[in-house]
């Protein structure tokens, strides 16, 4: 059975996970995030990240996403990865929510990081912030 390594992290009060293969790097930084950094907490309808920034830099497209903190790295077998059920997909307005990973005691939302970044950058450009993109993390 195939397996996947996931980075588990928090943003906007929710736990998320994303495949390590989609990440260029993770940066824990006391510095302010770079201009144009996407905020996953806000994108997911939660709270904006505050205090010290923690950043994940996508492998593609070239974008930096601000999160609250990193929790762990886990290896999950494909049998414990589920795409979002169709009924939920119909009602979910966030296309970057890919599905769920079953960990020992909980299910964690898996985000499609390339999709999140592509959509976030497109939204920034549409709102006139695009001239600040693309940005790489520190």
């Amino acid at each position: 059975m195939q397996s996947l390594e996931l980075l588990v992290f928090e943003a906007g009060g929710t736990r998320f996970a994303t495949p390590l293969s989609d990440l260029a790097r993770v940066v824990a930084s006391a510095q302010a995030p770079p201009a144009g950094a996407l905020d996953l907490g806000l994108l997911a309808g939660g709270q904006q990240a505050s205090g010290e920034a923690c950043l994940v830099v996508a492998r593609w497209p070239d974008a930096t996403v601000r999160i609250d903190r990193v929790n762990q790295v886990v290896r999950v077998s494909s049998g414990h990865l589920h795409q979002l059920p169709g009924y939920i997909r119909e009602h979910c307005r966030l296309p970057f929510i890919w599905g769920l990973a079953e960990l020992e005691t909980e299910a964690i939302i898996v985000v499609d990081l390339p999709r999140l970044c592509a959509d976030g950058l497109a939204a920034q450009q549409a709102s006139g912030e695009g001239d600040r993109q693309p940005q790489r993390g520190p």
């Binding site: 906007g12 997911a44 589920h82 059920p85 009602h91 307005r93």
Partner: peptide
């Protein structure tokens, strides 16, 4: 245990694992 899914209506609590199926 129900996992809330961001971006869904308030009446949708989320998803749960029931006997290996995501409900």
């Amino acid at each position: 245990r129900v996992a809330a899914v961001p971006g869904t209506p308030p009446w949708l609590l989320g998803v749960a694992n029931h006997r290996g199926e995501i409900v």
